[in-house]
């Protein structure tokens, strides 16, 4: 199995980089390719089984979009072919149609592979928690973002939110899935925090593997579900 991690040297905020580490522990025999911003992506000429991209700063986001733009068609082909792509935090915004950076008064077209738009306001940091269902799996996670997402994800949301919010505070549907491209605003250690979702993602890649440190991960996961479902817990 081949996992390509896009731009880990800069897309590593909020603990997102530990998703790669968790996968490395889960898949000790897999090949991991870390692609930096100055290198031609592996996916441009090959078909990785899984692509990861994590949270980044707004300046980096604009650079990432321009770095990926020449490969838009290739990315579309990979998505159509079922390659699994997990974009956490604001990484998924790069795949969307348009980003308005209202504080800096910058308008940027994304890659246009996901039919959503983004409004980013540096003076409005939005934090929160999410618990909900992805298929049969209970998902838990955290969010912390300047960008709010807009558009219709009623047919392709990732998480049906039980507590917390979705694309924006008016939505109860979190993220967007296009074939096997997962764009979620949940960030940080989404895989170690959700070992069952980690195993599900790997199953999409045709790999049956037990998530690393499963016993410890499940204990922490179950404790979090208990806390998130406690009515006293503020979201």
């Amino acid at each position: 199995m081949t996992v390509e991690v896009l731009f880990p040297e800069v897309c590593n905020l909020f603990g997102d980089s530990k998703n790669e580490e968790y996968l490395r522990l889960t898949l000790p025999d897999a090949e991991f390719i870390d692609t930096d911003l100055l290198t031609r992506p592996y996916f441009a000429d090959n078909t990785p089984d899984l692509i990861l991209m994590g949270s980044m700063t707004e300046n980096t986001q604009r650079r990432v979009i321009e770095t990926l733009r020449p490969y838009t068609e290739r990315l579309q082909a990979l998505i159509d072919g079922g390659t699994v792509i997990l974009a956490t935090g604001n990484a998924g915004e790069a795949f969307m149609k348009h980003i308005s950076y209202v504080t800096e008064e910058i308008e940027t077209d994304g890659l246009g592979l996901v039919d959503l738009t983004v409004k980013t306001d540096l003076f409005r940091r939005m934090n929160g928690k999410v618990i909900g269902k992805f298929e049969d799996i209970v998902m838990v996670g955290f969010r912390s973002q300047f960008g709010l997402w807009y558009g219709d994800n009623s047919k392709n949301a990732i998480v049906k939110v039980e507590r917390g919010w979705g694309l924006n505070p008016d939505s109860k549907l979190e993220g967007a899935r296009v074939n096997n491209l997962f764009c979620t605003a949940l960030l940080g250690p989404i895989l170690p925090d959700n070992p069952l979702f980690c195993e599900y993602l790997l199953s999409l890649c045709g790999v049956k593997a037990e998530a690393a440190c499963k016993k410890e991960a499940m204990t922490a996961y179950e404790q979090r579900i208990k806390e998130f479902r406690d009515p006293k817990t503020e979201f």
Partner: peptide, 30 residues
């Protein structure tokens, strides 16, 4: 009434805890 975000824990460097002279670590709290 919070369930604290774990994201920052994943930015922390836990490698010093591998030191053999640290023989017990008690994590107190939720």
């Amino acid at each position: 009434n919070n369930s604290e975000s774990t994201c920052w824990l994943y930015d922390c460097d836990y490698t010093p805890f591998k030191d053999e002279k640290i023989t017990e670590i008690i994590f107190a709290g939720k």
